[in-house]
Design a protein around this nucleic acid. Sequence first.
RNA 1: GCGGCUAUAGUUUAAUGGUAAAACCUCUGCCUUCCAAGCAGGUGUCGUCGGUUCGAUUCCGACUAGCCGCUCCA
Length: 513
Amino acid sequence: MSTPAPSANLMEAVVSLAKRRGFIFPSSEIYGGLNGFFDYGPLGVELKKNIRDCWWNDLVRRRDDIVGLESSIIMHPKVWEASGHVAGFSDPLVDCKVSKQRYRADQLFFAPVIVAQEDGVPVDLGFVCALESEDTSAELQKLAEELKRKKAARGKLEGIVPLSFETATPDQIPLIPSPATGEPGSLTPPRSFNMMFQTNVGAMTDASSVAYLRPETAQGMFVDFKTIVDTGRVKLPFGIAQIGKSFRNEITPRNFIFRSREFEQMEMEFFIHEDDDWAKWHRHWIDWCKDWLRSIGLPDTHLSEYDHPKAKLAFYSKGTTDIMFRYPFGVQELWGIAARGSYDLTQHANASGRPQEIFDEATKKKFVPHVIEPAVGVDRILLAVLCAGYAEEDVTDEKGNVEKRTVLRLSPRLAPVKVAVLPLLKNKEPLVARARALHAKLKRRHAVFYDDGGAIGRRYRRQDEIGTPWCVTIDFDTLEQPGDTFTLRERDSMQQRRVTEAELFALLEEQVF
RNA sequence: GCGGCUAUAGUUUAAUGGUAAAACCUCUGCCUUCCAAGCAGGUGUCGUCGGUUCGAUUCCGACUAGCCGCUCCA
């Protein structure tokens, strides 16, 4: 009877629900919106806060080896020079004006094609160009031979030397053929897109005032590492965790809140001894992250792992594994777990002139710790939770009519409203009074909601749509029968049973943490 | 940033060169003894700016935003 929404429309349905029920909507909408920015409404902000709280409680408060941090969003500009973001967070791109293809300049290679005539005079046939591949040289060689045949040139082909497009001179660019068309003249010079938001510190704007909004929260943990070691009573292995906003000038924000320009990260840097087994810790954190995702209700069937190929890794990286989630628009990166060696601390030690070392009491030697970094986006989790939880069911009523029921199956841990308190009828004062009393008592500890508008069935369905796991109805049995019990109606099964107030609080204590 | 398509109520959709319609949702009141019942009522700057026109939501242009593809994605 449960009909999962067709994948093609699921995204649309989720976006529509998010807007309709006040979870998420475009930022600055009365001015036409702003590409890549979103606002979280009354229910969205509760859901998001619950995701943050679950992560923080599980990772920081309920463990002895991880401490928290909130570093500033704007940091010294030298942080981003040392981290490599100023130089590396931009990729020069090349467009083919004819085919509308776009290439990364560092993945595009070209080579001059020259044949040596019998008299020894070299003849220039032009250029060939190809995308980086398993064997770029062979690819270019093949293209060069084709070019020679096409131009009916005689003589011996000289050796092909692949050159990065990044090194192409303005004279050469118009002569280099596009890999898409094979014809020269359509490629643009490489253009840079820096992904960091720039701003200025202080009222005066000049070169020395340039600063950046952080593109990741991680650098705060590295920059403050020594201070936390000196003051935090921590011992290896240990972690520093942070939740906060980050900003990236994404070329194309897409897929609702999946890739936006202002987003929220939950990152943790787990520092280990340089001699410790990084692979063991890497695996440990991958498993922890997957378990955690399951604990907030994401189904295992939607989760997978992707190991970044060694060849694509940054030189300092020992390994990166992404936990992927099956979104309606494809399997996409949710949580990246990177083994970054001692790269970041070493970079900051060199750039600041301050050693970032730990003293090993056993060996009496200093060393720079290595780090494992699980980094996840709050907004991506939130989207995953909405997509996985959204369902439309056909429900048949007593008269045999089939109706659609929209339900958001959110984990009780995450649900914005835990319990809705409903008097069965609005115009019977004792029911209303008892319901209000229960509501007042519940709301001291939990996010709860009181509703007396309309028929009871409508109120149940309204709560289904926003993911409220339980509804409690105050009925005539509550008033007339001994024991002061209520009807507890469960969201997913729609089953009802009678519970006492103590049982209700016990249920919440067990399920909401 | 490029190309294609699109923009009407909170949502999903109509109609129209002469100051806009329906359903659902929402709100108020009545009614209602357990799954979107019923009755009465309330809520709308046709994304923005400009052009053509006596008159533009409708035609044209630009901008903005959305979707799809390319690209990007520690």
